[in-house]
């Protein structure tokens, strides 16, 4: 079977082209789905196996990044989204898409998919938007289906509000113990594994996120979001320093995430 991916678009989402491309490269069929086509019933989320909320500047990041788009989903598509997640289908939010999932309460989320916000993404300590490359390390123990078998990747970060925080620090421990703090910024000069909870210096941690958190998953491990852009490293020639490296050209370091989800769907769904 060929998994079908709904890549959301509209209102300032702007990474849908490359997000569709990486799913297609991973063997899925990706559709550009304007959010309003789900709201007005022209399309049904149920017909898809994976939902992706790409990066961008939905509603210009006004009133907080991801907030207005999160509300469109939370108020306009509430039951469709809950049903989708509860039926065991993977969801990913990248950058602005991650902000959307956090603001609508789907991440870090809860067993009941209650859509209650428990964390947020604050302005980077630098106070402004930045585009730079970072190295990420994955929690090998996590049950997140998107990151299975991954160790480290290099990817660009491109955001102004990526500092993962929460009001209740105990929650962080719960999420950590539950394997939900899947991916962290790491010092590339260290050996794997060496992720740490102590906030790393700028710009190794580009935003001074708590515990160096770059991305999280929900308790089921099916919903995953991260600030950096794995889809922007789909081919070796898009790397930051590829001209310095002796490499065989081909698939980039970010592709494994998308392959994992496509494989998961192929293994768990008949059609």
């Amino acid at each position: 079977m060929i998994p079908r991916v709904a890549v959301l678009s509209g209102f300032g989402i702007n990474c849908e082209t490359e997000t569709m491309a990486v799913f297609e490269m991973a063997g899925a069929k990706a559709d550009r789905v304007h959010v309003n086509r789900l709201v007005n019933g022209e399309l049904d989320l149920e017909d898809y196996h994976i939902m992706a909320v790409p990066g961008g500047f939905s509603f210009g990041d006004h009133l907080g990044s991801g907030r207005l788009m999160g509300n469109r989903l939370r108020f306009g598509l509430r039951e469709q989204v809950r049903k989708f997640v509860k039926s065991g289908k993977p969801v990913i939010g990248i950058c602005n898409g991650f902000q959307v999932l956090v603001k609508m309460g789907l991440l870090p989320g809860d067993d009941d998919v209650s859509l209650t916000q428990t964390a947020s993404l604050a302005l980077n300590d630098s106070g402004h938007y930045e585009n730079r490359w970072a190295t990420l390390e994955f929690d090998s123990e996590s049950h997140c289906i998107w990151t299975k078998g991954m160790t480290r990747i290099r990817v660009p970060v491109r955001h102004g509000e990526g500092k993962f925080v929460t009001a209740d620090k105990n929650l962080l421990d719960d999420w950590g113990e539950g394997g939900q703090l899947v991916v962290k910024y790491v010092d590339p000069s260290t050996e794997y594994p060496s992720s740490t909870d102590e906030v790393l210096p700028y710009p190794i941690s580009p935003n001074q996120s708590w515990r160096n958190i770059a991305g999280v998953c929900d308790p089921s491990g099916l919903v995953f979001g991260l600030m950096p852009h794995p889809e922007a490293n789909h081919s070796t020639w898009l790397g930051a320093t590829w001209t310095r490296e002796n490499i065989e050209h081909g698939e980039g370091e970010g592709m494994k995430i998308f392959r994992n989800a496509v494989n998961y769907v192929s293994e768990n769904f008949d059609n």
């Binding site: 402004h128 660009p156 491109r158 789909h234 898009l238």
Partner: peptide
């Protein structure tokens, strides 16, 4: 320059 997005669309080879 860092505060411009120079990589959206995932096409940037020489940055």
């Amino acid at each position: 320059v860092r505060s411009y997005d120079h990589e959206v669309i995932a096409q940037s080879v020489i940055k």
